[in-house]
Computed example of a mutant assay.
Amino acid sequence: MPFSSAERPGNDTSRRSEPAKRRRVSWDLLRVAFVALVLLFHGTYLARQWHPELVARPFVFPYQLGASLLLVVSGYFAAVSLRRGDVVRWWVGRMARMLPAFFVGVLGTSLFLRLCAPPGWYAPSLPDVLANLAMLWNWKPQSYTYVDAAYWTIPLQLLWFTAIFALWRARRVHGDATVRTLWLVVCLELVLLPPRLHLQSEAFRTLYDGFGLYRVHLFVAGIAVQLWSRRRIRGPHAVFLLGACAFVHLCQTRHPSWTVGLVLGIGAICVAALGPDWDRFLPAWVARLAQWTAGITYAMYLVHQSIGYVVMRRLQDHGVGATGQLLALGVLAVLLGWLLTVLVERPAHRAIMRGFDRLRPTA
């Protein structure tokens, strides 16, 4: 998932923190690029996998990379923002940023599908909507259907943020113990994978998938890059840990091409974290456009897929070809993402944090 505006470089969610730093254009560009990969995968590949009546795309991008790389970025900025101040406020801020927009996205998408889905297409029932609001898919996928399949990353991040919060509060993770914990998590995911694949135990599957172990290596990779950028671990150690994360990703997905793409994306993240900002190579208007688009990427991610498929099908019924459908998907994602950001995500976050600060005035 794209990290929210509260997690941007230079945006500090703590009331008693270091002075704000200048936004780094490199991170804005990465966020926009990774969300674009999500749109390409959904619009050119999954769209016809799930709805073969849609006309052939002018090209196909069959690589599930964007969402995975966004989880890496989320892990990186979770580590960046956590060390800045009050850990309780940090956790409340994560929840306040993600949940209101998610809830409105679920309700809005469900209503749109009920009203506008073509005959024979999925239209969520009230139990489906409630199950999606409760994020029950990973726990019982055979019983609960996604209103929008892009939602799969949301409960994973909420769980991982909460796990970091609990560990930090208990003071179990600090100093060198942080790195040992990261290795423990990666090894645990890998060791438990064969039983997950071959044990045929629904209880084991429920726990493994429900707690997000099948992608926790991506979050670990982001934290590892952040520790490397702070000189908390040396370069060879960081590369070895990131290589282990890539190996686990290959074992989980069994897609070599997806893993190669993930490695290249993590390489770009390392360059952004360790090197100079990329603004020196770009015109000012590109930086401004990247900054604006990056600020709405979380909402874009929430509302583009299911609504976009219906819009593409309706456009096809009116004679619009594949290229026009893909352009419409991009425009729709930006428009709905902007509306959800300015009407729900940002005001809800501000209101919740003001209420939190009144209830808990001292950090």
Rank of each mutant, 00 (worst) to 15 (best):
A67C: 05
A244N: 00
C187K: 06
E7W: 07
A101V: 06
T341E: 03
G265Q: 04
V72S: 03
V129H: 07
A238G: 06
G175Y: 13
D128S: 08
H198N: 10
G120N: 12
A221C: 07
A36I: 13
W292K: 10
V344K: 04
S14A: 13
M98D: 01
F281I: 07
M353Y: 02
R23N: 03
A299E: 06
F161R: 00
L133C: 09
A67Y: 06
A170V: 14
H304N: 02
L207M: 14
V263R: 06
V32S: 00
F41M: 01
G175H: 13
R83Q: 10
T13C: 02
L339W: 12
T109H: 11
L167H: 15
Y151F: 15
V271D: 04
W121N: 08
D86F: 04
I269Y: 07
L218D: 00
P119N: 15
F356W: 15
T162Q: 05
L336C: 09
T13Y: 06
R15V: 11
P195K: 08
Y309H: 04
D209T: 12
L190F: 13
L115I: 05
L82W: 09
K21G: 13
P52Q: 04
R354L: 11
D209M: 08
R89H: 06
L339G: 13
F102T: 11
